[in-house]
């Protein structure tokens, strides 16, 4: 990188005089244009979600009659009726199913991956490096590959459609990323800390639980938020492996899509409910979210 830095400027014409008043003026105008462009772009990214929020707070009749942007002239039309209606529908159960799938999955992925990552980072065994390369390879395996085989396995085991089936599938496909992220973090723990503990005769389990795991908290937080959002937002695995009684919000809402026009009230309020917890988590832990994202994408 440093060589590129050194050579790049030579390709440019040198020797231009100091910046004139005119060029400063151009800069100023340019910065005004940048502001305008950025405001427009920001609106492009904000408006769709805003639209969902307003639509979710209007009756079907109003939504069918006029666009959500008329809210700026008719704010009185807002109502929470759609949200109240959700409470009595199948949505409430699906909300709890989402929680019941997401929380255990996140805990299990963290626990199982942390143990494996510790072994990969600090234990010596034959085939370790090859095994870890397999994990790296598995990082981007498409979920589709496992749908048919696991469905037939679940059928044989009698857990097709159940919550444990959904959870175990999520845990397995969460592991490669989790092991990868945590192993790379654990490797950076100073060797002296572990050696000291081992000299003191601490068991590997004790070292893992009282040294490695606590030191790994930042990475575990990143992993946790990422894993949580990933499972919370999943639809494909739920579509295949969760039956109607165990379906999470995504599958419930998907089942309402067929009559999009007449179900806009349920769909908009339900979709907003489903994204409110991820958004709160995102704003609260954005730092860990960004860390996890960067660690995961640089492979």
């Amino acid at each position: 990188m440093s060589t590129a830095t050194a050579t790049a400027p030579t390709g440019l014409e040198a020797g231009a005089p100091r910046r004139s008043l005119a060029s400063k003026l151009v800069d100023r105008l340019g910065s005004g244009a940048v502001q305008v462009v950025m405001v427009v772009l920001g609106l492009f990214w904000l408006v769709p979600t805003l639209g969902l929020l307003v639509v979710s707070m209007r009756t079907t009749q109003v939504n069918n009659a006029e666009g959500w942007w008329t809210i700026f002239t008719k704010p009185a039309e807002l109502t929470i009726q759609n949200y109240a209606n959700l409470l009595g529908s199948g949505f409430t159960a699906s909300f709890w199913n989402t929680v019941l799938i997401t929380v255990p999955t996140t805990v299990l992925v963290i626990g199982i991956a942390a143990m494996a990552a510790y072994a990969f980072a600090w234990m010596d065994f034959r085939g370790r490096d090859t095994a870890f390369l397999v994990v790296v390879g598995l990082l981007i395996v498409p979920i589709q590959i496992a749908l048919i085989p696991v469905a037939s396995l679940y059928g044989a085991a009698g857990i097709f459609g159940s919550l444990p089936g959904v959870i175990l599938f999520h845990v397995a496909f969460g592991l490669p990323f989790a092991i990868f992220l945590l192993r790379n973090f654990f490797v950076g723990i100073p060797a002296s800390l572990l050696e000291a503990a081992r000299m003191d005769g601490a068991s590997e389990w004790k070292i893992f639980a009282s040294v490695v795991f606590p030191l790994g908290k930042p990475a575990i937080a990143s992993l946790g938020i990422f894993q949580f959002l990933w499972v919370w937002n999943d639809m494909l695995i739920a579509l295949v492996f969760a039956d109607t009684g165990n379906q999470p919000m995504t599958k419930y809402l998907q089942s309402q899509m067929r009559q999009f026009g007449s179900n806009v009230d349920i769909l908009s309020s339900g979709a907003f409910m489903s994204l409110i917890i991820p958004l709160v988590l995102f704003f609260a832990f954005q730092r860990y979210f960004v860390q996890g994202m960067m660690a995961g994408s640089v492979k």
Binding site: T49, W232, N233, M249, L279, Q286
Partner: peptide, 12 residues
Amino acid sequence: IVFMPMAVSLMA
């Protein structure tokens, strides 16, 4: 604002 959709489910 631009990063926010990352947290939202693709369903939503």
